[in-house]
């Protein structure tokens, strides 16, 4: 017994150190293996609340930028409304449009936490499962893509930013429809790389890159950015296109969560094939 006490007196700190480090590494590895329910993240109640309070306190200083982006967004929406304003008298009361049924709806949310210089960046927004935000939904803003919802609590959600080493988003060249995967190499918050586009495709600098719509995460045709420079993957027959993003990740204030009404159908089809 005496020896045991002596042992702990001598090595107790080291043993505690090893135990704590093991706990840490279990957390790291569990998280990386895609554990669904990780409680330690910024969508949890207390950290979400604290981030929101801080964001509220500093919002004043960001207001001019916010006002600009809202004004731009309003202008765009107004442009889309022009038939409604001119032809109001022609509106019928009960038209059930069976050709263009609503597929997407959008939930607006405020960004309360954001980072751009980590290897995997996350954004915290102030809408959660109480507002029907679910993991896997796309997030956009008025300029372009923002990310994909990773986890939700009742009132907050953690969004995996596009600026993440794990991002792979299906994107297409608007002009000719060639599509590939958009990835981030953690160098700059302004650029991503569009890979997997075959070399016989005709690409010029300045081509618009849009979402391909091949997944239910983002609607088709959302502007992502423009081709900044054309490179080649060495030893392969694919381009490596540097794309300048239209989204300013350093200055995110308001975003929209994309709700796809057909997602359950698409997912069940995909699952049926996998099974």
């Amino acid at each position: 017994m005496h020896n045991l006490f002596q042992f702990f007196a001598r090595f107790g700190t080291t043993i505690l150190f090893i135990i704590l480090e093991i706990i840490c590494f279990v957390l790291i590895v569990q998280y990386n293996s895609g554990q669904k329910e990780v409680f330690l993240n910024s969508s949890s109640f207390y950290s979400g609340l604290l981030m929101e309070k801080y964001s509220d306190a500093t919002r004043f200083y960001r207001l001019s930028g916010v006002a600009d982006s809202i004004a731009k967004d309003n202008a765009r929406l107004r442009a889309e409304l022009r038939f409604a304003t001119i032809d109001a008298s022609f509106r019928h009361d009960t038209v059930i449009d069976t050709i263009y049924r609503q597929r997407y709806s959008f939930i607006s949310a405020q960004v309360v936490g954001n980072s751009v210089n980590q290897i995997d960046n996350y954004i915290t927004i102030n809408k959660g499962s109480a507002m029907k935000v679910k993991p896997g939904m796309g997030v956009i803003n008025d300029a372009g893509l923002v990310g994909i919802v990773r986890q939700t609590s009742a009132n907050y959600a953690t969004v995996a930013s596009m600026l993440s080493s794990q991002t792979r988003i299906s994107a297409a060249i608007k002009r000719n429809g060639f599509f590939g995967s958009l990835v981030w190499n953690s160098n700059s918050s302004e650029y991503m790389h569009l890979t997997d586009i075959p070399k016989h495709a005709d690409i010029v600098k300045g081509d618009s890159v849009i979402t391909s719509g091949y997944s239910s995460t983002f609607p088709k045709g959302i502007f992502i950015g423009r081709v900044e420079s054309i490179g080649y993957e060495s030893g392969s027959s694919f381009y490596d296109l540097k794309v300048k993003l239209s989204t300013d990740f350093n200055n995110l204030s308001y975003v929209y969560v994309v709700l796809d009404k057909t997602k359950p159908q698409l997912d069940s089809l995909a699952n049926a094939i996998i099974r």
Binding site: E21, Y31, M51, S115
Partner: peptide, 15 residues
């Protein structure tokens, strides 16, 4: 870690 969304990483370094 809770704020940086990196479970365990900052904890391991700080320990």
């Amino acid at each position: 870690d809770m704020f940086y969304n990196t479970p365990g990483i900052h904890a391991a370094a700080t320990v």
